[in-house]
Design a protein around this nucleic acid. Structure first.
Lengths: 226, 226
DNA sequence: ACAAGATACTTGATGCATCTTTTTTGACGT
DNA sequence: ACGTCAAAAAAGATGCATCAAGTATCTTGT
């Protein structure tokens, strides 16, 4: 008897959740933006229940916060918290890169190279949205190649929190955002785990610099105002 | 102007979620146990809505799964998935221990030593529940001392998934479960980050051995049946 | 006695009404 | 202009009714 993939039934709340996740990761929300359940319900054409469900899940992910019982907003991100997320990413994406380097096939490498080419093109075209998406796609390929689903989930959650903060800063760094991706691919080809890990760490620390600067700058501005 | 902690207002779904989390972490559920929203609503004395909300959050944490659209169960844990969780814990708790070693005060150390003493006593008394809780308390102290809230959240989620699988295996290992905690405390006293990291890694790998054996054994049994 | 089909029951998803509290708004006084 | 305050509007939490789909039970024919 053939195996059938357990087909994922979709409930409305999952659809809404996925849509909001996409929006978050694409930077289509700004930190502090207010969400209203009834408004979203109208936009999605559903009742409020699936929206509430999705928002509850995002709140659980700490991507949105309840500033007060009736005030739902896109979560802010302090500099300290961003630094923590970065430190965690260094450890976890390092693990993903190491593992991926051990098991990567040439097909895997080709997918990565294809993403890189498209990303290069998107940057050349000045297409910020596509550039951000392809950058994320590259990062998520590593845990996928490595066969680490739990890791993928954790990283997705971290990106949900970073999403609203990277949109503006992304192209500020220009091609720097993907410069470090090339040595990752080279390391995977050679099954060189330490090199893969070091390259992805460089990417996170150096490529993420403009984002950190922007958050730090925003905090400083806020401090002066107070 | 002094900082005020954003006081957490409590909604019912948070109360239910916290209660279910506790139950999960204490191993009071078995993998595969079925949850029924209406039953839980009766037990908690609420309507079904807050229960649904809490269950949705736990599903988002991947602590429970929807086997089919109307069949909510405590999630299983494959050997591969457990190994992945362990690898992630090694990286993240390593980071927590390193950071904690740099900033730990003598007050922090005293708290850890107190937990260790009580844990020793619980094991001597054969009090499995208390032993498990204190073991967890020790592990969660490290990211707290280190001041890493995001890390704490991630680890809590991982423990939610491990909870139903550690109950039986815990005392099987006897004192082995906390043997490696002592060198962690010693390393924190000396502000010796590498030693702290190594000690906690030993604890995760060696202390977690009986859990892995149990999961592997369970899978083997299941494979034979098929 | 047993299997297949029909029936009744369970159960989560969805929608919606209501309640309480918050937020908004606008008038008012300083 | 600006801050204050009160009334009105808004908004999330909670509870509940209904629906559709799955499960268990019962019936029925062999």
């Amino acid at each position: 008897m053939p195996e059938f993939a357990t087909l994922e039934y979709e409930n409305l709340n999952s659809v809404v959740y996925a849509a909001l996740c996409d929006a978050l990761m694409q930077g289509r929300f700004q930190p502090g933006d207010r969400l209203k359940i009834r408004d979203l319900a109208e936009q999605f054409g559903t009742s409020v229940t699936p929206i509430r469900d999705a928002i509850l899940r995002l709140a659980n992910d700490e991507a949105i916060t309840f500033r007060s019982p009736r005030d739902i907003r896109i979560a802010g991100l302090s500099e300290a918290r961003y630094r923590e997320i970065r430190a965690i990413r260094v450890r976890l994406e390092g693990l993903a890169a190491e593992t991926a380097a051990q098991v990567a096939t040439s097909a895997d490498v080709q997918v990565l190279e294809q993403i890189l080419r498209e990303n290069e093109q998107a940057i050349a075209d000045g297409d910020r949205l596509k550039g951000t998406q392809l950058n994320q796609a590259f990062h998520f390929m590593l845990p996928q190649i490595a066969g680490l689903p739990v890791l993928t989930t954790i990283l997705r959650r971290l990106w949900l929190q970073m999403g609203p903060h990277i949109s503006d800063a992304y192209l500020a760094g220009g091609r720097a955002m993907i410069d470090h991706h090339y040595p990752v691919v080279e390391a995977l080809k050679r099954h060189d785990s330490p090199a893969a890990s070091m390259a992805i760490v460089d990417d996170i620390l150096l490529g993420g610099k403009p984002i950190l600067d922007r958050i730090a700058q925003g905090e400083e501005r806020q401090a002066r105002r107070a």
